[in-house]
Computed example of a mutant assay.
Amino acid sequence: MVTGNEYIFPNIDDALEYVLENEQEALTLDRKRQVAPCVPEQPTSSFLKPGMVPKLIPVDSLDYPYSGYFNNAPSESFVMSRLASGRYSLKPNLRERKYLFRGETEFHSPCIPSLFRKNKQKQYIEELAIGQEMELLMLSHPLVQLLDLGVELNGQLFRFEMNLFGLTQHYYNKTCFLDMTSSPQVAAFFATTDYDWKTDTYSPILDEEHVAGILYYYSLDIDTDFKEVPLTTIGLQVFHVVVNSMVFFIS
């Protein structure tokens, strides 16, 4: 978040300490995060009698839409959440998170998704085709197919919605998504390291003349995120790369 009151710190540890203290203060002041909202069940029939009050979804139910914010799970765990599509997603636990984070080695205003970083480029057919090929490859994985078709537990079918398009970005494909993470340490890593495409390795930035790395943060709002704000989740997935990640869709 660029507010016009940015700070420069001598090291990443001081920057993290400041941001996390700011986050906890903002979380304490956020009234929406004090008490879990009441959410009525959607009636299965349109023949509700006048005056009938729909039952409320229990907070500890898998169908509770705010389970990522209100739960008793460990903070480092992933929480199973029911999406508007009726499918489920394994999201990072945001109970103690007011911010999502993004780290970059230098300041960019605005931050631009990898697909749109060439100013003169007008067509993106090649990049999108490569991304779709990656999606199809991931969809061919037996575990991905299993979760897509659904797993039956106690007589109920649970189908999972995997953000394969967003996941392609984590395998070096260009997309219209902009990564954010629920882990401030992950953002700090990307703010203080250089990536070498030839060797596929990261190394710490030790040059004292290098411009300051940047920690961006986004303030979560449970009323608008994933609804009015085009935010979507990557979260826990079947491949060896596990990412506590959210992505913005930039249109």
Rank of each mutant, 00 (worst) to 15 (best):
F226L: 14
G166H: 04
L164D: 07
C176Q: 05
Q169D: 01
S219R: 14
D223M: 08
Y202W: 12
N163D: 08
T192Y: 01
P204Y: 02
P184S: 09
D221Y: 10
Y172R: 15
H170E: 02
T201E: 11
Q156C: 11
V211M: 09
Q156F: 00
D207C: 12
W197T: 06
N163C: 04
G166W: 01
T192I: 02
T201N: 11
I214P: 00
Q185A: 07
D225R: 06
H170R: 15
E208R: 13
L153N: 06
H170K: 12
Y216W: 12
D221Q: 15
F189E: 02
D223P: 04
Q185F: 10
L231T: 07
D200A: 14
D223A: 15
E208V: 10
K174G: 00
F177I: 00
F160R: 09
H170C: 09
Y202A: 11
I222V: 04
N173S: 12
A212N: 12
K227D: 09
E208D: 07
M162F: 04
M162Y: 04
D179F: 11
R159F: 09
K174F: 01
I222N: 03
H210W: 07
G155T: 08
Q156T: 12
T193R: 13
D200F: 10
P184W: 06
A191D: 04
T181V: 00
Y202R: 12
H170G: 04
